[in-house]
């Protein structure tokens, strides 16, 4: 039921994704602030399919040369491609403090035992500025294979970017910067090089009092 209704291909399903800041309060407690978050969902067959976005509308927001989004999509499988619009929650006080931890956690599940590689490319004006590649092994839990990328440290580029964004006085200025800031995450089967999931992330700043928000779309080519 989750295919077409959540970030899932026939081989891999994203269960959770978050980017966060942990600020210690005292030796035993810390505050966790979520910049962006996709929580666990259990869509039913009665739920509608995700809305579709024509992938050609966003090609230029991501790397376009060899191995770019167009080439990846042509390689397929087409059901592995998604667009996430995040409304990031920046309503947090940031200080330069080495005890602060900026991290990303994500979880995936599959019916197959495999080794996955996650490539995360941060792009400015569609050009890659930094890439993180992580390899994860499966753990068999409750009849399926689970992959956890737990508390992966956010890179210096991203921490500086968030700080600079926070220093802008108005939300429209932040959104103007974010218009040219994107992230492309590609999860592949390390051994077969098959694309398992490809998620294109675009951003605005949240105006909500309820924290980070998001919409998920299927990427299609009509």
């Amino acid at each position: 039921s989750w295919q077409g209704r959540s970030i899932a291909s026939s081989k891999l399903r994203m269960l959770e994704f978050s980017a966060f800041l942990e600020q210690p309060q005292d030796p035993e407690n810390f505050n966790k602030h979520l910049f962006v978050h996709i929580g666990q969902s259990n869509p039913a067959y009665s739920d509608p399919y995700l809305e579709a976005v024509d992938i050609r509308q966003i090609y230029d927001k991501f790397p376009e040369k060899k191995g770019g989004l167009k080439e990846l999509f042509e390689k397929g499988p087409v059901n592995a491609f998604f667009l996430v619009k995040f409304w990031a929650d920046l309503s947090v006080n940031l200080q330069d403090d080495s005890s602060f931890f900026y991290g990303v956690s994500s979880q995936y599940e599959s019916s197959e035992n495999m080794i996955i590689t996650s490539s995360t490319k941060v792009c400015s004006f569609g050009k890659q500025v930094v890439e993180k590649v992580e390899t994860e092994y499966a753990r068999f839990e409750n009849g399926r294979y689970v992959f956890r990328i737990h508390r992966s440290p956010l890179c210096e580029y991203m921490i500086n970017f968030i700080h600079k964004l926070k220093h802008l006085p108005e939300k429209y200025m932040m959104n103007s910067v974010l218009e040219n800031f994107t992230i492309l995450q590609v999860v592949t089967n390390r051994d077969t090089l098959e694309t398992l999931l490809c998620v294109a992330y675009v951003f605005e700043v949240s105006t909500s009092e309820h924290g980070a928000q998001h919409h998920i779309y299927r990427l299609v080519k009509d």
């Binding site: 978050h37 996709i38 929580g39 809305e51 976005v53 024509d54 050609r56 509308q57 966003i58 090609y59 230029d60 376009e64 619009k85 409304w87 218009e179 675009v202 605005e204 949240s206 105006t207 909500s208 309820h210 924290g211 980070a212 928000q213 998001h214 919409h215 779309y217």
Partner: peptide, 24 residues
């Protein structure tokens, strides 16, 4: 076929793309 430097607002995107949900 890429839209080039067209602002996101001028692209063919669903209306929901510009509507922040009240809660996720």
């Amino acid at each position: 076929s890429a839209p080039g430097h067209i602002p996101m607002r001028k692209r063919q995107l669903p209306a929901s793309f510009w509507e922040e949900p009240r809660s996720s």
